[in-house]
Amino acid sequence: SFNTVDEWLEAIKMGQYKESFANAGFTSFDVVSQMMMEDILRVGVTLAGHQKKILNSIQVMRAQMN
């Protein structure tokens, strides 16, 4: 498990989005775990492969939080 959203993004090789997530207010796992595709688009993730990777990881995160 990760301590910060930045660490999580690095771990899934999506570190290039750290600033975008932070600027959009997605700075805690409570918020990130609620993200939908529209949120991912809003933070500027436009590549389908990256969207899928982030969404898949969020689903895993949700499962671990319950």
Rank of each mutant, 00 (worst) to 15 (best):
V60C: 12
M37L: 13
I40L: 14
A63R: 06
I40Q: 00
R42H: 12
M36A: 12
N66C: 11
I40R: 00
F29T: 05
T46M: 10
A24H: 14
V43Y: 02
V45K: 01
M35D: 01
Q16Y: 06
E38N: 08
E7P: 02
E19T: 13
L9Q: 00
S1Y: 14
H50C: 03
L47T: 14
G15L: 05
G25N: 06
L55Y: 12
E19H: 11
H50N: 04
A48W: 09
I12T: 04
T27K: 08
A24Y: 11
I40N: 00
A24K: 08
T46A: 10
V60D: 15
T4M: 05
K18D: 02
N66A: 14
T27Y: 06
F2I: 11
Q16D: 07
G25T: 02
M61A: 03
Q59C: 09
V5N: 00
N23T: 12
I58T: 04
Y17S: 02
I40P: 00
K52L: 13
V45I: 11
S1K: 15
N3M: 11
K13V: 07
K52E: 15
G49R: 11
G15I: 05
L41H: 08
K52P: 01
M65Q: 09
K53E: 13
I58C: 04
S57L: 08
G25W: 03
M36Q: 15
L9R: 00
I54N: 00
I54T: 00
D30T: 11
E10T: 09
D30R: 14
E7F: 05
D39M: 02
K13D: 14
G44F: 02
K52M: 13
G49H: 15
E7C: 06
V43M: 07
D39T: 03
S28K: 07
A63N: 15
S1V: 13
D6E: 12
V45L: 02
G44Y: 02
S20V: 08
A48H: 12
V32T: 03
S57K: 06
T46C: 08
K52T: 13
F21D: 01
V32S: 01
A11W: 12
V31P: 04
V60R: 08
V60M: 12
T27C: 07
L9A: 01
M61E: 03
A63T: 12
E19R: 09
N3K: 14
I12F: 04
H50T: 02
V5Q: 00
V31S: 14
A11K: 09
V45R: 00
R42P: 02
V60P: 04
G25H: 05
A48E: 14
E19Y: 08
Q16R: 10
E19L: 10
R42N: 13
F2T: 07
W8C: 02
A22M: 12
I58D: 00
I12R: 02
I54V: 04
G25A: 04
M65S: 07
E10H: 06
F2M: 09
M37R: 08
D39S: 03
V43D: 00
S1D: 13
H50F: 03
M14T: 01
V31T: 12
H50M: 03
M36T: 15
V32W: 02
S1L: 13
M35H: 01
A22Q: 15
E38C: 08
E7V: 05
F21A: 00
I12W: 03
L55T: 03
I40Y: 03
E38W: 06
M14E: 01
S28M: 05
F2Q: 07
A24S: 10
W8R: 00
T27P: 02
G15Y: 05
M14R: 01
K52Q: 15
S20R: 13
S57T: 04
F21W: 04
V5M: 03
Q51V: 09
Q16P: 04
K52F: 10
K53T: 15
M61S: 02
F26I: 13
S1G: 13
Q59F: 10
M65H: 07
Q16F: 06
L47A: 12
Q51T: 06
G25E: 04
V31C: 08
I58F: 02
I12M: 11
E10K: 06
V5H: 01
T4S: 12
V5A: 02
A48M: 11
L9E: 02
F29D: 01
V5T: 04
K53N: 11
Y17Q: 01
L41C: 08
L9H: 01
K53R: 13
R62Q: 09
F29R: 04
Q34K: 12
S57N: 06
A11Y: 14
T4F: 06
G15F: 05
T46S: 10
M61K: 02
Q16H: 07
T4P: 06
V45M: 03
G44L: 02
K53L: 15
T4N: 11
S20F: 07
N23V: 13
M36G: 15
M65W: 06
Y17D: 01
G44H: 03
S57Q: 11
S20C: 08
G49V: 14
R42W: 07
W8K: 00
F26L: 08
V32Q: 00
Q34D: 09
G15N: 06
S28H: 07
E10R: 05
I54M: 06
G15M: 05
K18R: 11
D30F: 09
R62E: 06
I58Q: 01
M36E: 15
E7A: 10
V5F: 03
M36I: 14
I40E: 00
K52C: 10
T27Q: 08
Q64S: 11
Q51I: 10
I54E: 00
D39A: 04
D6N: 11
L47E: 14
S33M: 13
L41E: 11
M35I: 05
R42D: 07
M35P: 00
V32Y: 01
N23I: 11
N23P: 02
T4K: 06
G15E: 10
S57C: 09
I12E: 04
V32D: 01
A22H: 13
I40W: 02
Y17R: 01
V60A: 15
M37F: 13
F2C: 08
A48I: 13
A22F: 13
F29Y: 04
S1H: 13
K13I: 05
T46W: 07
L9F: 03
K53G: 05
R42T: 11
K18T: 07
Q34F: 07
S57A: 15
Q64H: 12
I58Y: 00
V32I: 10
L55Q: 06
N56R: 13
F29Q: 03
V43K: 00
I58M: 02
V45S: 01
N56K: 13
W8N: 00
A11V: 11
S57W: 10
Q34A: 12
M37N: 06
K13G: 14
G15D: 09
T4C: 08
V5E: 00
E19P: 06
Q34V: 09
L55W: 15
K18P: 01
T27L: 08
W8Q: 00
I58L: 06
K53Y: 14
L47I: 15
M14F: 05
E38K: 11
M35Y: 00
L41W: 08
S1M: 14
V45T: 02
Q64F: 08
K52A: 14
Q51E: 03
L41Q: 14
S1A: 12
